[in-house]
């Protein structure tokens, strides 16, 4: 079931690069982050972000979805520009945007998670550790988008089918959309937190790789692709 390497212990310190075009937000985030998270660089544009990430090779990049510069694709373009760094650097998308277009574009570009900017300091620190250890981070809203895109009734016969969610994944997504934390989801479904993380990672992979025509249509309705 676990076909992805998940380190058992989160690293003691995590290096991050903060990419956002608002200096106020960057400094606020810096002071909100846990003491075990080290900010090794900041950037405000697509070009600067790619340069800083390549120079510093951080564990996690906190990436604003909307960025000036580049060809106008914002955060997704930064991820594409750092695509050859391998899996060592992971991206967490931060956004104030509500539009499915923005969120799904950055996830499909390769971000491992998506949280809104109104998240608390503890919440973002938790998300950074989770991303650094290889997990995916889903906010209730992203879970809602996934359910909307894949449908709430489509159930895969096997867990590896890319175009559908399995019954368990559907349950996990529903609970996350209802505002449950991973721990609460695990308790609710009588499974371990590790298993919940596996399910979420599987859903993230499906969201990134699926070529399912409903997803295409759903995205097209929201002016994506």
């Amino acid at each position: 079931m676990t076909d992805e390497p998940v380190p058992n212990n989160p690293p003691s310190t995590v290096s991050v690069v903060v990419v956002d075009d608002h200096a106020i937000f960057r400094s606020g985030l810096r002071s909100d982050l846990d003491s075990r998270i080290r900010v090794v660089g900041e950037a405000a544009t697509v070009e600067a972000a790619v340069a800083v990430v390549r120079a510093r090779r951080p564990d996690v990049v906190l990436l604003d979805v909307h960025l000036p510069g580049g060809r106008g694709a914002g955060g997704a373009e930064v991820i594409a520009g750092c695509g050859d760094l391998g899996g060592s650097t992971r991206f967490l998308a931060l956004s104030v945007s509500d539009s499915a277009e923005d969120v799904v574009a950055v996830i499909r570009a390769g971000a491992r998670g998506y949280v809104t900017k109104t998240i608390s300091g503890a919440g973002i620190s938790d998300a950074v550790f989770r991303i650094a250890s290889g997990d995916a981070v889903f906010s209730p809203r992203l879970a809602g988008f996934v359910l909307d895109a894949f449908g709430t009734a489509a159930v895969a016969s096997t867990g590896t089918e890319l175009d559908r969610l399995s019954a368990r994944e559907l349950e996990v997504m529903r609970l996350i959309a209802r505002g449950y934390s991973y721990k609460e989801v695990a308790k609710e479904l009588f499974i371990s937190v590790k298993t919940v993380e596996t399910h979420v990672s599987a859903v993230l992979r499906k969201l990134q790789l699926s070529s399912r025509h409903e997803l295409t249509r759903w995205a097209a309705e929201r002016r994506l692709l």
Binding site: T118, P140, R141, A143, G144, L147, D148, T152, A177, R178, G179
Partner: peptide, 9 residues
């Protein structure tokens, strides 16, 4: 108090 609404369908 903030009310977060997530709607599907």
């Amino acid at each position: 108090h903030p009310v977060e609404v997530v709607a599907v369908g």
